[in-house]
Design a protein around this nucleic acid. Structure first.
Lengths: 199, 199
DNA sequence: TACTGGATTAGTACCAGGTGATAGTAGCAG
DNA sequence: CTGCTACTATCACCTGGTACTAATCCAGTA
């Protein structure tokens, strides 16, 4: 008896289901050339739920994702905000923010937190990022909690300078100088990001 | 006979299913106090598919989203790449990238495209953004296609300077100067974003 | 009054895509 | 020969439906 085929089949089965979670057991029998019972035993051993459960799980995950999307409007949770003065936001680096191979956060997420905060701290209907000068001081890794602090340095009528420093614990990981256009300055010609609601 | 209840029931049914797509017909009978046949006739009339079809649809949508996530590793499609010299990427502004109220792209998406490209153009195992100086020249709106062009300006052993210009048609919408750390320079101490695979 | 017709309910047959249990077969090892 | 693992087969049953037929209620109307 070939001992290998079983493990190989298990690997293949896992791979197939991962690649295409919409496959029924019957379709798998055709691909793996074993009986439907074997497929089911294999799924048991591997802890792979039945088609409907898989679809339900996916649906639930995407449903949760959709429901938590409002958080996406402002990246990070704003915990303190003194309009036109300063603000603080928290942002935890999760799976979806890191480069999977190394667990290092992708730069634009760190930037996004700072950018969102810089825009939020400006007391205007519409605020847009015009320019930024940023520095990634050190890597941020999976699971680390980023604390961004923003300070409004000068507030002209049409533009404001905002400095943002992001820390993990005591350590500074990012710093940025943002120039934010505000709607008070009549037409807004330039921009990248808008004001988000404060709630 | 109460004519209203039917229309009311249809409205309620639509609302209930929209709010919680995971409800079975049986659960709906309890809430709407009608027989299961009525629920099914109502679903027919309203064109609401059965539970499993709803879940399958949701799963498919989220699966498509997940499958386009590898694109998430590099934001934008890289259409041309000359390592250590230049690169071009395309990125279309879609619903999920804009501020819903105004249809203006959120800055960090435009930044992310440029950042991804700046990192991709560097010919190294690991490349991380160390610093950036960026300017949002004008707003980018829903549906616009951003063409980012990156040029490597100077390539020291441990860092490289990359300039990125993003256009919509002929018009420049973004420009950025990036300093990218490369792994050749021994330990990588700083960083924001990693190299993504080129495929 | 009886008749018509929409809304509702009831019941049946059938389906996909399974679970769970039980039994049987093939092939080799001790 | 016995025991073990791997695999297959079969059957009953489950959920959440579809598709169809038939009965019932109840109102308006000829």
């Amino acid at each position: 008896m070939e001992r290998l085929p079983k493990r190989q089949r298990h690997q293949q089965l896992s791979r197939l289901v991962e690649e295409n979670p919409f496959m029924t057991d019957r379709e798998l029998t055709r691909l793996l050339k074993v009986s439907i019972q074997t497929i089911r035993l294999d799924r048991m051993e591997l802890g792979i739920p039945e088609l409907r459960e898989r679809l339900k799980l996916m649906a639930e995950r995407s449903y949760d994702a959709v429901r938590s999307l409002p958080l996406h409007e402002v990246i990070g949770d704003i915990v303190d905000l003194q309009l036109d003065k300063s603000g603080i936001s928290l942002f935890e680096i999760r799976e979806e923010h890191v480069f999977s191979r190394t667990g290092i956060a992708r730069g634009h997420h760190v930037f996004a937190q700072a950018n969102s905060l810089a825009v939020a701290v400006i007391n205007d209907e519409i605020a847009l990022t015009a320019a930024a000068d940023i520095r990634f001081v050190r890597q941020v890794k999976l699971g680390e909690k980023c604390i961004a602090k923003a300070y409004v340095r000068s507030g002209g009528r049409s533009k404001a300078k905002v400095e943002v420093f992001t820390y993990v614990g005591e350590e500074m990981v990012f710093q940025g100088h943002f120039i934010i256009y505000r709607s008070a300055g009549e037409q807004v010609i330039e921009g990248g990001d808008e004001r988000a609601d404060r709630n």
